[in-house]
């Protein structure tokens, strides 16, 4: 088991290395001299020369990568040009908001996707199955920013039940926080619910056709016990693994949802940075999100290995 974990960890190293190289190269696509851009309108030659030296712009590309990556490994993602704050600080400030949104979205996705998938598999080719499949197609085909606008129209403008935008910290007012997050969380979780529903259906259909499920039925067990105790327990692991991977997707999906509902999170940070040409922030956020994604992938693999006796051999 230890060998497997070590091998899996070792495989992550080149992936992370190439990710950092790609993100570093992205910055090189930028037109113009960063030192001139940073120096501002007056573009004093001494200032530009000082900045070029400070930013190691006179060094060859691999050396500059070396400086950059050594900073990243110390947790230094550089400074935001616009806000004049370390990128690390900005990420630390915005991440909790997005994590809360993503966690609520995942909860909603699990609560809708897994039961819908089970019902769809158990009642295959019934009206429930068709309904669940229509829901999945709806979830996969609806742009979440449009769904967000429709929900604002219904629940905020027409019914007046929920606030249309804004964010209240849970430490300030938990009820107001949940009221402000429920629509964005649903919008974000909708597509993931559809993905989970499809995978649950497919995994359950496979398991429901196995010998041990037939044996359980032959023993006279009640159908709900057969489905929930025997079938679901064996089908759930790939679904949970997928859920862990989809959590990474939620972080990027949050970009649009936060924009629609004016939530000051991670997604809004990257969009604002893009429009302010604050490339250190863009680079930092992309690197951070990718690392989370890689770590989640690794954890999902390890969890899968731990609970699957056949893999442990």
């Amino acid at each position: 088991m230890l060998t497997y974990f070590l091998k899996r960890l070792a495989a992550v190293i080149p992936t992370v290395f190439f990710v950092t190289v790609m993100i570093f190269c992205l910055q090189q696509l930028l037109p113009g001299d960063p030192a001139v851009i940073l120096a501002g309108e007056d573009q004093d030659q001494n200032t530009v020369a000082y900045l070029r030296q400070k930013m190691h712009l006179d060094e060859p590309l691999p050396v500059r990568y070396g400086y950059w990556i050594s900073g990243v490994m110390r947790g230094d993602f550089g400074d935001s040009l616009r806000i004049q704050q370390p990128v690390r600080q900005l990420i630390q400030d915005k991440l909790p908001v997005t994590l809360e949104l993503a966690a609520l979205a995942m909860m909603i996705a699990l609560l809708i996707g897994i039961p819908a998938g089970i019902v769809s598999a158990v009642a295959k080719d019934s009206a429930w199955d068709y309904l669940a499949n229509i829901f999945a197609l709806w979830g996969l085909s609806t742009p979440n920013f449009w769904l967000g606008i429709l929900m604002i129209l219904l629940f905020s403008v027409s019914l007046g039940w929920l606030p249309a935008s804004g964010y209240v910290s849970p430490s300030e007012d938990l009820k107001a926080n949940l009221l402000s997050m429920i629509m964005p969380a649903f919008v974000l979780g909708n597509a993931i619910a559809a993905v989970l529903m499809r995978h649950t259906r497919s995994a359950m259909l496979q398991v429901l056709n196995t010998d041990y499920v037939r044996t359980a039925r032959a023993k006279g067990l009640k159908e709900n016990k057969v489905v929930l105790k025997h079938a679901l327990r064996n089908a759930i692991m790939p679904i949970i693994t997928l859920g862990a991977l989809e959590f990474g997707t939620l972080l990027s999906g949050a970009v649009l949802t936060e924009q629609v509902f004016s939530i000051p999170g991670f997604g809004k940070l990257i969009v604002d940075a893009v429009f302010n040409r604050d490339y250190a922030v863009v680079q930092g956020v992309v690197l951070f999100t990718s690392t989370i994604y890689i770590v989640l992938n690794l954890l999902a693999d390890m969890a899968y290995f731990l609970v699957n006796p056949r893999l442990r051999g």
Partner: peptide, 22 residues
């Protein structure tokens, strides 16, 4: 390895970053 690394970059975030840089 390069493909694995590129797949680790979330699709929309990568598209936003590329569109921003371009």
């Amino acid at each position: 390895r390069l493909t694995d690394s590129a797949l680790a970059l979330p699709f929309l975030i990568l598209a936003i970053a590329l569109a921003a840089f371009l």
